[in-house]
């Protein structure tokens, strides 16, 4: 799991996020951070926006990059920057939600409960609208797992980011997809 990413890092040291990340923490030059922002701001913000409302997402995304900027130089250098950033974003989001008293722990835990089909029947002209609506109806954990999977993380990486077991993540994704399918049909 770690070896391919390392090889990737060796092959393209010039522009890889890991290279930029190491450079930034070694030199603290803002241009490296700017490159990282350019690479990951969009997916991170999308992740946050999906899990919460727009204003909270905007707050949290600023917090995330501020955290990255102010962080002491990490001791370990062999990390996957993307999953590291998503982890930072996830922690920041949960902190923010806790602060706003919006965080319900059981919400994260429930993943086996099947989503009830809402009574009102939404009619969308296009599939994208329907998809957006269906996604918003998923639980926090299922949304999160689905997004991570779509972002290209492997199951093991999602486990690492969310601190959950392999089986939990696997079933969350399965339920998320099943629910989406049901809502969109």
């Amino acid at each position: 799991m770690k070896l391919p990413s390392k090889i990737k890092g060796l092959l393209s040291t010039g522009t890889s996020p890991e290279y930029l990340w190491r450079k930034f923490y070694r030199t603290r030059k803002p241009e490296y951070l700017a490159s990282l922002v350019q690479l990951f701001n969009q997916p991170l913000f999308h992740y946050l926006l999906t899990l919460t409302d727009a204003s909270t997402a905007e707050d949290v995304i600023q917090t995330v990059w501020l955290k990255v900027l102010k962080m002491d130089t990490p001791q370990t250098s062999d990390i996957v920057v993307k999953s590291w950033l998503f982890k930072v974003a996830r922690n920041s989001l949960i902190d923010e939600l806790r602060r706003l008293n919006r965080w319900r722990y059981e919400e994260l835990k429930e993943h086996t409960i099947e989503l009830e089909v809402p009574l009102e029947i939404k009619v969308f002209d296009d599939r994208l609208g329907k998809f957006n609506w269906a996604l918003s109806k998923l639980s926090f954990a299922q949304k999160e797992a689905f997004i991570f999977q779509q972002e290209g993380f492997s199951l093991m990486e999602i486990c690492e980011i969310t601190d959950e077991s392999f089986e939990t993540i696997k079933s969350r994704i399965r339920y998320a997809k099943a629910n989406l399918k049901r809502l969109m049909s």
């Binding site: 700017a34 701001n41 905007e58 995304i61 599939r127 957006n132 997809k177 989406l180």
Partner: peptide, 28 residues
């Protein structure tokens, strides 16, 4: 359906506009 989901996800993501980062403006 998986492929459709991927496509929809990509489209959805493209529509989202990330805000500019204040950190880079002020601290950068």
């Amino acid at each position: 359906f998986e492929q459709e989901l991927n496509e929809l996800y990509r489209q959805r993501k493209e529509l989202v506009k990330a805000p500019p980062i204040d950190v880079l403006k002020s601290e950068g």
